[in-house]
Structure formats: structure tokens, C-alpha cells
Amino acid sequence: LPLEERVTHFRDMLLERGVSAFSTWEKELHKIVFDPRYLLLNSEERKQIFEQFVKTR
């Protein structure tokens, strides 16, 4: 999958899993780590997309 598509899937997962915009990566990790979409991005990309996600929520 192209990166753009993987990012979209990852963001959808964050929304569906009820990730809080007022929380930290560490506190929200347990909600998403077992979702197959979690593995679409490498660890650096995951954290970066998470940070963007919480800023725009």
C-alpha cells in the first residue's frame, strides 16, 4: 500500500479505537497495539501520525 493510504488506515484506526486527543502515546497504545492496522507504519511514522492526530482533534 502507498504511504498515504497506510496513514489513512492508521488515522481511521485511531478514531475507531477512541484514542483521546488529550492523552499521551504511551497511555493510548494499549487501545491500538493489537489492531492489524497498527503495523502498517513503522514506529517513527506511528508516533508522528499520532502527534498530528491529537493536535487536529
Rank of each mutant, 00 (worst) to 15 (best):
12 D>H: 07
35 D>H: 09
21 A>M: 03
20 S>L: 05
31 K>G: 04
41 L>C: 02
37 R>D: 01
8 T>L: 07
27 K>L: 04
17 R>E: 07
6 R>Y: 10
42 N>A: 05
13 M>N: 04
55 K>C: 08
42 N>P: 06
19 V>N: 09
22 F>Y: 13
52 Q>R: 06
24 T>K: 02
27 K>Q: 14
22 F>D: 15
22 F>V: 07
19 V>C: 04
37 R>H: 00
35 D>G: 02
3 L>G: 11
41 L>M: 09
37 R>A: 00
31 K>W: 00
36 P>A: 08
20 S>A: 08
35 D>I: 04
53 F>E: 00
22 F>N: 15
21 A>Y: 07
56 T>C: 11
48 Q>W: 12
24 T>A: 05
36 P>G: 06
13 M>K: 05
29 L>Y: 15
34 F>E: 15
7 V>Y: 12
50 F>V: 01
24 T>R: 03
35 D>T: 01
34 F>Y: 09
44 E>R: 11
32 I>Y: 13
21 A>I: 04
24 T>G: 04
51 E>C: 00
42 N>M: 03
37 R>E: 00
11 R>G: 05
2 P>Q: 15
38 Y>E: 00
56 T>S: 13
43 S>N: 08
2 P>H: 15
41 L>N: 02
35 D>K: 06
28 E>A: 01
10 F>T: 03
17 R>Y: 13
25 W>K: 04
20 S>Y: 01
19 V>A: 03
33 V>K: 13
15 L>I: 09
19 V>S: 02
19 V>R: 00
9 H>F: 07
48 Q>F: 07
24 T>E: 00
15 L>N: 11
38 Y>W: 00
40 L>Y: 09
51 E>N: 11
43 S>E: 15
3 L>K: 15
25 W>S: 05
55 K>N: 10
13 M>A: 01
44 E>I: 14
52 Q>D: 14
18 G>R: 09
30 H>I: 07
14 L>C: 05
14 L>P: 10
2 P>Y: 09
16 E>N: 04
38 Y>Q: 03
15 L>T: 12
50 F>P: 00
8 T>D: 07
3 L>D: 12
38 Y>I: 04
22 F>C: 14
11 R>V: 04
7 V>A: 13
42 N>E: 13
1 L>A: 09
31 K>V: 03
3 L>M: 15
34 F>Q: 14
55 K>W: 06
25 W>Q: 02
33 V>E: 12
34 F>R: 14
4 E>R: 01
56 T>I: 12
54 V>T: 12
36 P>H: 08
48 Q>S: 12
44 E>C: 11
16 E>I: 00
15 L>V: 11
49 I>S: 03
52 Q>M: 07
46 R>I: 00
10 F>G: 03
10 F>L: 03
8 T>A: 13
13 M>H: 02
3 L>W: 12
16 E>K: 14
14 L>H: 00
5 E>V: 08
29 L>D: 06
32 I>G: 02
2 P>D: 15
54 V>W: 04
4 E>V: 06
38 Y>S: 01
16 E>R: 00
43 S>F: 09
47 K>R: 13
38 Y>G: 02
11 R>W: 09
30 H>V: 05
11 R>M: 08
5 E>Y: 07
44 E>G: 11
19 V>P: 14
4 E>L: 11
33 V>W: 08
7 V>K: 15
26 E>A: 04
12 D>N: 10
56 T>P: 14
20 S>R: 00
40 L>T: 00
47 K>D: 02
42 N>S: 13
27 K>P: 04
34 F>N: 11
5 E>P: 03
51 E>K: 10
42 N>K: 12
36 P>D: 05
2 P>M: 11
54 V>H: 04
1 L>V: 08
52 Q>L: 07
7 V>E: 08
46 R>G: 08
46 R>C: 04
52 Q>S: 11
50 F>M: 05
2 P>K: 15
33 V>Q: 15
45 E>P: 02
50 F>S: 01
46 R>K: 07
53 F>P: 02
12 D>S: 10
24 T>H: 09
51 E>Y: 08
15 L>S: 13
18 G>H: 08
34 F>C: 12
17 R>K: 15
33 V>H: 14
27 K>C: 13
13 M>T: 02
18 G>A: 05
28 E>F: 02
40 L>N: 13
18 G>V: 04
37 R>C: 02
3 L>A: 09
14 L>Q: 05
54 V>I: 11
38 Y>H: 08
40 L>S: 04
46 R>M: 03
42 N>I: 03
29 L>I: 15
9 H>T: 07
25 W>D: 00
56 T>V: 07
1 L>Y: 15
49 I>R: 02
1 L>G: 15
14 L>F: 01
15 L>P: 06
33 V>F: 06
19 V>K: 08
26 E>K: 00
7 V>F: 13
43 S>L: 12
50 F>N: 15
48 Q>E: 13
51 E>Q: 10
40 L>E: 07
14 L>S: 01
33 V>P: 12
38 Y>L: 06
22 F>S: 13
55 K>F: 05
22 F>I: 02
47 K>N: 06
21 A>V: 11
14 L>G: 02
12 D>A: 09
11 R>F: 10
52 Q>V: 06
12 D>Y: 12
47 K>H: 12
26 E>V: 01
56 T>M: 06
12 D>R: 10
50 F>R: 03
9 H>W: 09
22 F>K: 11
36 P>M: 00
17 R>S: 07
15 L>G: 10
28 E>I: 00
26 E>R: 01
5 E>N: 15
45 E>W: 07
